[in-house]
């Protein structure tokens, strides 16, 4: 598919061109590529937030014609609502997605318990009543993950969700995401520019070229699961990261 942004000045920016990507149900796909190559655009296309000029997108067999209505999304900024408690932030999707939306008022207590369970799963036990400003950046990002998952989406879209965190918190959250995925089994598309992150988490890493972006290489990561953080220091893992790195430097030339 191809997408050209109109651009304020009239001369459009072709963000992605001839982009072709296929992700199996339940798979963990990572997309890496140089900055500005259209990774975020790919996310918007896949969720139907923008329409391609050419080409087609299908999610779960159905052609995407408008916003998909089911995807969970998380970005580099947690984007929590400061007037809501952590629990109420997590519950936000249930106030919008059918059929929860209709039942929300009546089953508020059940839903709240569900939010608390999910929060406990990411290590935020006991923080449900706090407000976002009382939490560290890493904790806010965990909350944002919970918000993306509370409605049990079939598709989770993550756009550089850990990019603004320090190295230790980032690795902690890799493990959080790894465990959530193993447990719940949704499909993930993770955009990142951290090659170790991609190699550690994904089944397949797709490398995008510079703008206009397209997929230039896809590499299956055949490391056994469950993967522990220590795997990052094994020669096999290091080789994979090296390989990805050389492909990125090729496309940057």
């Amino acid at each position: 598919m191809t997408l050209t942004y109109a651009g304020a000045s009239g001369d459009g920016v072709t963000a992605v061109q001839g982009l072709d990507l296929n992700v199996e149900r339940g798979a963990f796909a990572a997309v890496v590529g140089p900055s500005g190559c259209g990774k975020s655009t790919l996310m918007k296309l896949a969720t139907g937030l923008v329409r391609p000029n050419e080409g087609r997108i299908a999610v779960d067999g159905a052609l995407v014609k408008g916003p998909v209505k089911i995807a969970g999304m998380a970005f580099q900024n947690a984007n929590l609502l400061p007037w809501r408690t952590i629990r109420d932030n997590v519950l936000l999707p249930l106030e919008i997605v059918e059929p929860h939306r209709r039942r929300f008022r009546r089953n508020k207590a059940d839903y709240a318990a569900r939010a608390d369970r999910l929060l406990a799963l990411v290590g935020l036990d006991g923080f449900a009543e706090r407000f976002p400003w009382e939490l560290s950046g890493g904790m806010q990002q965990r909350t944002s993950l919970c918000r993306a998952l509370i409605h049990e989406p079939a598709l989770l879209m993550l756009d550089e969700p850990f990019a603004a965190l320090d190295a230790f918190t980032r690795e902690e959250l890799w493990c959080v995401l790894r465990d959530l995925w193993a447990r719940i089994g949704f499909t993930v598309i993770l955009v990142t520019h951290d090659l170790r992150e991609a190699a550690f988490l994904a089944d397949t890493v797709h490398v995008m070229s510079a703008r206009p972006g397209r997929i230039v290489a896809s590499r299956a990561i055949e490391l056994p699961r469950p993967r522990a953080l220590d795997i990052c220091f094994e020669p096999e893992f290091v080789d994979i990261v090296h390989d990805l790195r050389s492909r990125i430097s090729e496309v940057r030339q």
Binding site: T47, G48, K69, I70, M73, H151
Partner: peptide, 25 residues
């Protein structure tokens, strides 16, 4: 924030939902 709007629209939120849940508060 445009990203927050994306999060909500990808859930099927209509403009009115976004105004009620985010805009007005």
């Amino acid at each position: 924030e445009p990203e927050l709007e994306d999060v909500l629209r990808a859930l099927g939120a209509r403009k009115l939902d976004i105004i009620l849940k985010v805009g007005i508060p």
